[in-house]
């Protein structure tokens, strides 16, 4: 009996089953905690902590109503959105311009600057909190959103600058030169030629800067004093007092926190396309 030779995109049945089983298992393991939190968030309060393990138990939206209307959650949420969006916009503006300068221009201190950007990323937050706190204090920024935006930018900008510089380096310099001959100065070249071609890099930067601010707890607890000004990460801590964690509020809050981050990711990933510079130059 002669068998048809297998095409390059085909697999044997066994291989296919094994592959899919592995992938499904891995996906399930990765998704399980998220799913568990979601399922818990739609259980009544007493069912969450019962020793009986159930997947679904009298599903209800009561926890969401509670967290949205009876707590400061909406205020914190708004604070977080403001802080994260400002961090994203300012962080991207700074790292894109710095990355472009590092990629395209030679200036004194360039190497030094790159080292500084690299080394600052190596300090753990725990060490930085105290010095940054005293800087914020001397600037009278304690208990303001600005303090958080600035602090998050110090985390995000060095990394994003390195990343964007790497991305800009992949855009052929011929294009800059063509733009120069077409009448563009460095700023217009950056705006009309480099940025549109760096969309994937910018998307990753946007997502990264947003996340840096969105889920952060340590700086937020240290710099923000009044309850009304807390961001989500810090605010949710209040649902977990030492002896009486309020799992109903915590799980519902956690699910709500995921939504904006997912939204930002959704918009970012649409720009993660390969080959944007294809066809412009050859060789």
């Amino acid at each position: 009996m002669s068998r048809r030779p297998r095409g390059r995109d085909e697999r044997s049945l066994g291989a296919s089953v094994a592959l899919h089983a592995t992938l499904l298992t891995a996906t399930a393991i990765a998704l399980f905690p998220v799913l568990w939190v979601f399922l818990a968030s739609i259980k009544p309060q007493n069912a969450i902590q019962s020793s009986k393990v159930t997947l679904i138990d009298h599903p209800t939206l009561e926890n969401y109503r509670h967290v949205l209307f009876d707590t400061s959650f909406p205020t914190w949420f708004l604070n977080s959105v403001v802080v994260a969006v400002f961090t994203m916009v300012i962080g991207m503006a700074m790292s894109a311009t710095a990355g472009y300068a590092l990629s395209r221009f030679n200036f004194p201190g360039k190497r030094g600057l790159m080292w500084v950007f690299l080394i600052t990323q190596m300090f753990p937050v725990a060490i930085l909190i105290v010095p940054i706190y005293s800087i914020m204090a001397s600037l009278n920024l304690i208990d303001t959103k600005a303090s958080l935006v600035i602090a998050y930018c110090t985390v995000a900008v060095p990394f994003c600058t390195w990343m964007l510089r790497g991305y800009f380096d992949t855009i052929p310099r011929d294009l800059d030169e063509a733009a120069a001959l077409d009448g563009l100065g460095p700023f217009k070249t950056f705006w009309y030629v480099i940025l549109p071609l760096a969309r994937p890099g910018l998307a990753v930067t946007a997502f990264y800067t947003f996340l840096t601010a969105w889920g952060e707890v340590a700086y937020a607890i240290a710099f923000i004093l009044s309850d009304k000004k807390l961001t989500l990460g810090a605010g949710l801590q209040q649902f977990v007092p030492q002896f009486n964690p309020q799992w109903d509020l915590l799980t519902a809050g956690a699910v709500l926190i995921m939504l904006p981050a997912s939204l930002v990711f959704y918009f970012a990933q649409r720009h993660l396309v390969a080959g944007l510079t294809a066809g412009g130059t050859k060789g």
């Binding site: 052929p172 011929d174 294009l175 030169e177 063509a178 733009a179 001959l181 030629v193 071609l197 944007l276 510079t277 294809a278 066809g279 412009g280 130059t281 050859k282 060789g283």
Partner: peptide, 10 residues
């Protein structure tokens, strides 16, 4: 200028 690589805006 016409570049060897053409340098078209992709």
């Amino acid at each position: 200028m016409v570049f060897q690589s053409y340098a078209l805006y992709p």
